[in-house]
């Protein structure tokens, strides 16, 4: 029986590269750019965070900056705020994306326009939406004017704070608007490829609507939903523009706090800004790594969701 292996495994395209020189010519320039610019930048950042290369200090390594940052009560405040905003944005966007994707799949290909419209936010810069959020949600924004017109409030100060606010509502709304289409399109591509056929199989095998969602749709979309959510989390955790424009002055999201320190007139604060940047990178990388490990383990144990 082993002789009749399914024909899909062989891939005529990927082959062993016969000559190393040609391979290094192809990969070399890209490796140099990423290695020197990205790797170099990262290493220089790490060196500076350990006190090396700094103007005011001697060239010896110390963990002083890390101690300073980690001991700073503002750091912890910023960390909690960042975790909260990144988690909330990701969860809300992921949940709504599943709903939107399931809805769009029922429309099938009847409505091409809506499939196009849903992609608009993908290419729109975050900054534009942050500006729009200011115009829309600020105390003198469009929403507040509507509330006034409807007689819900009497002065702009009665309008609830939706930007530069304690709960990061403006930031979260901006991210949710921007990321729902991203996650939705990722889910839709798997759902509309194999999904529709597998759902039909499920239907003839007597699965009801809920069972089809739970036992077919969810397992199908889970890998891409997870990957997309992870990307969104990593992005929202480290991104700068949106909280810089829409965040409150205290506590700030980590990226803003890092930049404030970095651009402080007091040059001694600069390495602490870099240190915070490195910490953001470490947290993001660890999250991605952990998610990978968890998926690997659950796959190996045969648990699907």
């Amino acid at each position: 029986m082993k002789g009749h292996q399914l024909q899909t495994n062989h891939n005529f395209r990927t082959r062993m590269a016969p000559v190393m020189p040609s391979l290094s010519i192809l990969l070399g320039p890209a490796l140099i750019v990423v290695g020197v610019l990205f790797g170099g930048g990262l290493i220089l950042g790490i060196l500076q965070s350990f006190g090396y290369l700094h103007v005011a200090a001697a060239n010896h390594l110390s963990i002083q900056h890390y101690l300073n940052v980690l001991m700073d009560p503002d750091f912890l405040e910023s960390l909690w705020l960042t975790l909260y905003i990144a988690t909330a944005s990701t969860l809300i966007a992921a949940g709504l994306s599943v709903a939107v994707a399931l809805f769009l799949v029922t429309l099938a290909h009847k409505n091409r326009l809506i499939h196009f419209i849903i992609q608009i936010p993908l290419t729109v810069p975050h900054l534009v939406i942050a500006v729009a959020a200011v115009f829309m949600l600020s105390p003198t924004g469009l929403l507040s004017r509507f509330a006034m017109a409807l007689g819900l409030i009497n002065t702009s100060s009665q309008f609830p704070l939706l930007i530069n606010d304690r709960w990061g509502i403006g930031i979260i709304l901006t991210y949710v608007w921007k990321e729902i289409p991203f996650i939705t399109v990722m889910i839709l591509s798997v759902l509309s490829n194999t999904g529709i056929e597998l759902l039909q199989v499920g239907q003839t095998l007597k699965a009801n609507r809920w069972q089809r969602f739970r036992y077919i749709t969810l397992p199908i979309i889970f890998p891409s939903l997870g990957a997309a959510s992870l990307i969104v989390f990593a992005y929202t955790f480290g991104a700068f523009e949106v909280p810089y424009l829409l965040g409150q002055t205290y506590p700030m999201m980590l990226s803003v706090w890092a930049y404030r320190n970095y651009s402080d007139i007091d040059l001694l604060a600069r390495p602490e800004g870099i240190t915070t940047g490195i910490l953001i990178a470490v947290i993001v990388s660890l999250t991605v790594l952990m998610a990978q490990v968890i998926t690997k383990i659950t796959r190996r144990k045969g648990i699907v969701l």
Binding site: E197, L198, Q200, G202, T204, L205, N208, Y215, V304
Partner: peptide, 25 residues
């Protein structure tokens, strides 16, 4: 019950889970 032209097995289940799907439902 319909059996489709392609096998359309659920890729996230093993053989027994695939076969038992209808009973589980």
């Amino acid at each position: 019950v319909m059996v489709f032209q392609k096998p359309l097995l659920f890729p996230f289940m093993n053989v027994a889970q695939n076969i038992g799907f209808g009973l589980r439902m």
